[in-house]
Structure formats: C-alpha cells, structure tokens
C-alpha cells in the first residue's frame, strides 16, 4: 500500500470505521481514539497490507482495539456528546428506529458488533469471522440469535409499532 492509497483509505473508510466504533462505544472521543489507533497501525503496516484488503484490515484492527478498550473500561457511559451527535445526526422520525437502537444496546458487545458489521458494511459471514476472529458457524449462530432478539424486542407489547 502506497502513501496515496493509504490517504485514499482515510477518505473512503474513516467514516465507516468511526460509525461502527461509535455505535458500539457510544463515546465520541473514545471512538476517535480507536479510529486513529487503527489508522496508525495501518500506516505502520502499510507495506504488508494489500490495498484491496485495507478495509477489512482496518475493521479488524478497530474491532480488536475496541474490545480492548471495553475490557479496560468495563463500563460504557453514554456521553452527552454522543447523545447530541445522535440527536443531531438523524432526528429519529420513526419509532422503529428508536426502538431498534434501544434493542441494539441490549445485545452483547459481540452480537452488536456482528449486527453492525452485517448491516452497516454488508460483510459476509466469512468476512465477519475474519474480522472478529470467529469461525463462520459461530458468526451465523451469534448473528441469528442477535437478530431474533431484536425481533423479539420490537414485537414485544410495550414496543408494538
């Protein structure tokens, strides 16, 4: 990967990685730190990374750093900044989206990451497995259970649309 390709990666994938991490951590500055760390690592290892695989490499690093961050902090505090960001970013017009977001945060970190990688980035099970270090069967099981949990949440009586 050349310098130009790396900087192109910044343009192409920085928002995606940031969105993925922010949705998991719900903390603006922490998410930025993780993204910056991921790109730092990509820059250091640019000689070993092919440009075609740079996106999944970025997500892999970001995911691992996010897990490390969660393990270190053990608790995630919904910061005011993120609330404002979420509020300003997308004016949740529909209850479905709000309920779905609530349901998302009831999932485990692993399940939430899998759902986000699938829904946000459209990765296949195999690719998600490579990013998260799971095999394809595990990804499938975790993802399906997570999806059904979301389903149960949105069809529950208190959240009936």
């Amino acid at each position: 990967m050349t310098e130009r390709e790396y900087n192109e990666c910044v343009n192409l994938y920085a928002d995606n990685v940031y969105r993925f991490i922010l949705k998991n951590l719900r903390h603006n500055e922490d998410a930025k730190d993780v993204v910056q760390g991921a790109f730092e690592k990509l820059w250091i290892n640019r000689a070993k990374v092919e440009n075609e695989r740079s996106k999944s490499y970025l997500f892999t690093i970001a995911y691992n750093q996010m897990i490390d961050h969660i393990r270190k902090n053990k608790r995630i505090v919904l910061s005011e900044g993120f609330s404002e960001n979420a509020k300003g970013s997308g004016e949740q017009k529909h209850d479905t989206k709000r309920i779905l977001n609530e349901a998302l945060y009831k999932l485990s970190e692993k399940q939430r990451s899998l759902v986000l990688l699938k829904d946000y980035e459209g990765y296949s099970y195999e690719e998600i497995g490579q990013i998260t270090g799971l095999n394809e069967s595990q990804v499938k099981v975790y993802l399906h259970r997570a999806r059904l949990q979301l389903r149960e949440y949105i069809v529950s009586p208190e959240n009936v649309i």
Binding site: G88, V115, D119
Partner: peptide
C-alpha cells in the same frame, strides 16, 4: 439497521 451517514469522522 441503516447506517447514519451524517455521522462522519
């Protein structure tokens, strides 16, 4: 889920 495209780095 649909990504919120307004969230950018």
């Amino acid at each position: 889920l649909q990504p919120d495209m307004a969230v950018i780095f």
